[in-house]
């Protein structure tokens, strides 16, 4: 049993001490950026929150409020607005927790999808179309949280993984995803901004996401 744990990742140059068995880890499990330790818990916490557990919701908050707020901040680019969006999103998570279906995706993805949609809705209503087009450019660098050295290292690690992933995409795939996901462009605006046909914009978004999925092995 113990050999199930390790090590698909064993380095060829490493020689295990005598009597130590190396095995392979299971296949097809999700790699969630916050670590499986926290992630495995989140599905169950959300199910408890759906039944009215405020204590479970507090743990959910502590686990994911940074990602919810950070996602909102990246899209709306204003701390006050991001806070409002994060609050709306988290309250929506509480309100609609019963709609979470563990077999249709992770709690993390479900929550962050709500947060991202709220942020996009907000940015679309706050900013005129033309303003957003004018601001088309490189995404801002964000500040990593600094309260805890492990969290900080972890955030850097995740950000590096995302940068590396985006770097593997074609220019159009990358630009389309940046404009749509980080800036809240509709696919029509993406096609306009990149000067490509609408069908191409839709296809590049899909291919780009699928390539990231394959690279990160996040399929479940």
């Amino acid at each position: 049993m113990s050999s199930d744990r390790h090590l698909r990742a064993v380095d060829d140059s490493y020689h295990a001490p005598d009597g130590v068995t190396l095995g392979t880890s299971g296949t097809g499990e999700v790699i969630t950026p916050r670590g499986l330790v926290r992630a495995a818990n989140l599905d169950s916490l959300l199910t408890q929150a759906a039944r009215g557990s405020g204590a479970a919701f507090e743990q959910i908050y502590d686990n994911i409020s940074g990602a919810v707020y950070g996602t909102a901040l990246r899209v709306v680019r204003d701390p006050q607005l991001a806070e409002d969006v994060a609050q709306e999103a988290l309250v929506e998570v509480w309100r609609t927790a019963a709609r979470f279906r563990p077999d249709a995706g992770s709690a993390r993805a479900w929550i962050l999808t709500i947060a991202h949609r709220r942020a996009v809705d907000r940015v679309r209503s706050e900013q005129a179309h033309t303003t957003r087009l004018r601001h088309h450019g490189k995404p801002d660098d964000k500040q990593a949280p600094t309260d805890n050295v492990v969290d900080t290292m972890f955030a850097e690690w995740e950000a590096a993984r995302v940068r590396a992933g985006l770097a593997e995409l074609t220019e159009l795939q990358r630009e389309a995803i940046i404009l749509a996901y980080y800036k809240g462009y509709t696919h029509r605006e993406v096609s306009e901004a990149l000067d490509i046909p609408l069908g191409t914009a839709k296809a590049r978004l899909r291919d780009g996401l699928m390539k990231l999925r394959d690279m990160w092995e996040v399929a479940r």
Partner: peptide
């Protein structure tokens, strides 16, 4: 189901500690 896990990775990489006051307001 699969691709929303991809955007979850994108979102998680943006994580920033929110203002402390947010917690009380949400609760």
């Amino acid at each position: 189901a699969n691709l929303l896990e991809v955007t979850a990775v994108l979102g998680e990489a943006e994580a920033v500690a929110p203002p402390l006051s947010l917690r009380a307001r949400v609760m």
